[in-house]
Design a protein around this nucleic acid. Structure first.
Length: 597
RNA sequence: GGUUGUGUAGCUCAAUUGGAUAGAGCAUCUGACUACGAAUCAGAAGGUUUAAGGUUCGACUCCUUACACGACCA
């Protein structure tokens, strides 16, 4: 379709030259899709040409339209509404376009001139508690962005930086030591990450109680928070961990091992994957080397107490602490180290961090600090900043226990999909295993689509009922369209109708057929847009538009009742192609597609 | 207090990056299964795009100010 647009622009340029004797640069001939309520497929806005051509917008539109209709075979008609020239494209041209599409598989790479070696870091969980709804948005976004970039032909590495050390981990460990009584995931009947989470919660509960007691004894809240025995123990444990204390390390390995088992299971269930795992326990020391490097280069400075800082005021930021006075690292220290390590490992020209927007400032600091260090990869860093997920009851707060657990949510959406599927009763002939797979695929399709259809950078509201909805602007709507097409293809195969033929001999197309070709041809532009903006929402919207267009087509023309053999064949071919395209497009969102549902 | 993001139909979201009468879904109402799958399709209704100015042929989009909500930095 890009080619068709280019040709039209060139033709318009020629028309302007012929009619007005004026050379119009191609760049100022912006074509846009014609709005549905008008006849035509492409629209030229003529307002911007009035100065150059010395005429009003409407005469310009008419003059250019008439010239095109007379001289350009691709243009079969036109109409002018105010400053808009709507061009109708000859059906032969649509058929040619469809033939060009057919010549390549639906999932063929879409070169965009974007980055070629990309690292997408996402998920990056803490190992002290299970994943929740917010992590799901992160995981789905990261996975999808990686797939979208792959679709542009880039080599993409999915990385997961596991936050496996620090005070929060020690909290779970202390609580386990004190209250655990040797419990294991097996003995407790809990996934490992949930078991760790249980002790994290226990820590917080008893810690609060200790603070309350201290306060009752007249200690201020601030002091009580530090003096509480549990917190003191956790701090001690962190030091012991850094010192490599054997018993502490053993417990740490044991508990993290449980958590990883739990995460692995969840990742498999929600269908995300990683090419590379980084662990902060393995990278946090590398950051200190970067700090040393900065001091040597004179771009960092030391304060009187020995703490190390970088001054980013010239960049519009503040002074930022990089290393505490006692030599222990802060968050950004390890980020400096990990960025370097990733670059060594993959030599990226784009490094994407899928991180919530509460870290916007932090990410600016990271990038500016790496730039100060003169790192060539500083400019390649992109923060895919996404908004938090709110609940109808308000914000999610782990401390107040108002988080939506990821595993539980997945169970809920699968159960809802099952209930709906049973109610429809269309799955005769599927085995129990196939049915389970179907419920899973539909439930996750609903959930993923629900979380991905919203512009990532916007905060979004999670409505439990809408997240499992199967009708309207949802994943299952699109999956249903695919299943319908699958049924069509099965029947066409039975009847021996070919999915491809030479359709050039066909005369006029039905409007819905034309619309389908146009939608199909949009795919490369959609991928390019989504890749440039790191936005799966663009892809989600396209999948919906395509499915919607197909359902319109399906309702308005008959396929197997059609007596004209070539027309019938075209409709089967269109259906097949739309099916393939839907599968590929949903695949970019991490959503699978059923043959029947 | 400083920095920053968001504000669109009753609700949840779009709007081709400055273009036409601001579009979808849900919810409400109406019509379409003796036809290839009704998890569908067609239609109705629903808007002072938070407010006020400004820029121009043209503003949800850009600029200024105010208001509301959120995040971050102390």
């Amino acid at each position: 379709m890009q080619q068709l647009e280019q040709d039209l622009k060139t033709a318009l340029q020629t028309a302007a030259r012929a009619v007005f004797g004026v050379e119009i640069p191609l760049a100022s001939l912006a074509l846009q899709p014609t709005r549905k309520e008008f006849a035509g497929s492409f629209t030229l806005v003529t307002f911007p040409l009035t100065k150059a051509l010395g005429q009003g917008p409407e005469p310009i539109g008419r003059a250019l339209g008439e010239w095109l209709q007379a001289h350009e075979p691709r243009v079969s008609g036109f109409n002018v509404v105010k400053g808009f020239l709507n061009l109708e494209i000859a059906d032969a041209e649509w058929l040619k376009l469809f033939a060009q599409l057919q010549a390549q598989p639906a999932g063929a790479p879409v070169p965009t001139g974007g980055p070629q070696r990309v690292v997408v870091e996402y998920s990056s969980p803490n190992t002290n508690k299970p994943l929740h709804l917010g992590h799901l948005r992160n995981n789905f976004l990261g996975y999808s962005v990686a797939e979208i970039l792959k679709a542009t032909g880039a080599t993409v590495t999915k990385a997961n930086l596991v936050n496996d050390r620090g005070i929060h981990i020690c909290k779970s460990m202390i609580a386990y030591q004190r209250f655990g009584q040797g419990e294991t995931p097996a003995s407790a009947g809990l996934k490992g990450d949930h078991l760790a989470g249980k002790y994290y919660v226990l820590f917080e509960k008893h810690y609060r109680e200790e603070i309350r007691q201290l306060e009752a004894e007249g200690v201020t809240n601030e002091v009580a928070k530090k003096q509480a025995p549990l917190m003191a123990e956790a701090q001690q444990m962190l030091q012991a961990w850094e010192a490599g204390d054997e018993a502490v390390m053993a417990l740490w390995h044991q508990m993290n091992g449980w958590v990883y088992e739990g995460f692995t299971e969840t990742y498999a269930t929600i269908g995300v994957d990683f090419d590379k795992f980084y662990y902060e326990s393995g990278t946090y020391l590398l950051g200190k080397e970067r700090v040393e490097e900065g001091l040597q280069k004179g771009v960092f400075f030391t304060k009187e107490n020995g703490s190390v800082w970088v001054d980013l005021q010239a960049e519009g930021l503040d002074e930022k602490l990089l290393l505490r006075a006692d030599g222990t690292s802060v968050y950004i220290t390890q980020d400096l180290g990990t960025a370097e390590l990733k670059y060594q490992d993959f030599g990226y020209d784009s490094s994407i961090y899928v991180i919530a927007d509460e870290q916007n400032y932090h990410m600016q600091v990271l990038q500016a600090t790496l730039a100060k260090l003169g790192k060539p990869y500083a400019a390649a860093i992109h923060h895919l900043s996404y908004g938090m997920v709110d609940l109808p009851s308000g914000k999610m707060k782990s401390r107040e226990g108002t988080v939506v657990d990821a595993d539980e949510l997945v169970r809920d959406v699968v159960a809802a999909a099952k209930a709906a599927t049973l109610e429809k009763g269309k799955t005769e002939g599927l085995s129990d295993a196939e049915l389970e797979e179907l419920y899973h695929l539909l439930g996750l399709g609903a959930l993923k689509y629900y979380l991905l259809k919203v512009d990532p950078k916007k905060r979004m509201l999670f409505n439990p009922e809408e997240s499992v909805a199967l009708e309207g602007h949802t994943g299952p709507f699109i999956q249903y369209s695919y299943a319908r097409i699958a049924a069509i293809r099965r029947k066409a195969a039975e009847l021996g109708i070919a999915e491809a033929a030479d359709f050039a001999a066909l005369g006029a197309l039905a409007p819905t057929e034309r619309e389908l070709v146009q939608e199909l041809a949009r795919y490369p532009a959609v991928v390019a847009d989504a890749a440039r903006n790191l936005s799966p929402a663009v892809v989600a919207q396209y999948a919906y538009d395509l499915a919607k267009a197909y359902n319109r087509f399906y309702a308005e023309v008959s396929i197997f009742q059609e007596t004209d053999e070539l027309k019938r064949s075209l409709r089967v071919a269109l259906s097949a192609r739309v099916g393939e395209q839907l599968k590929v497009t949903l695949g970019l969102l991490g959503i699978q597609v059923p043959e029947r549902m």
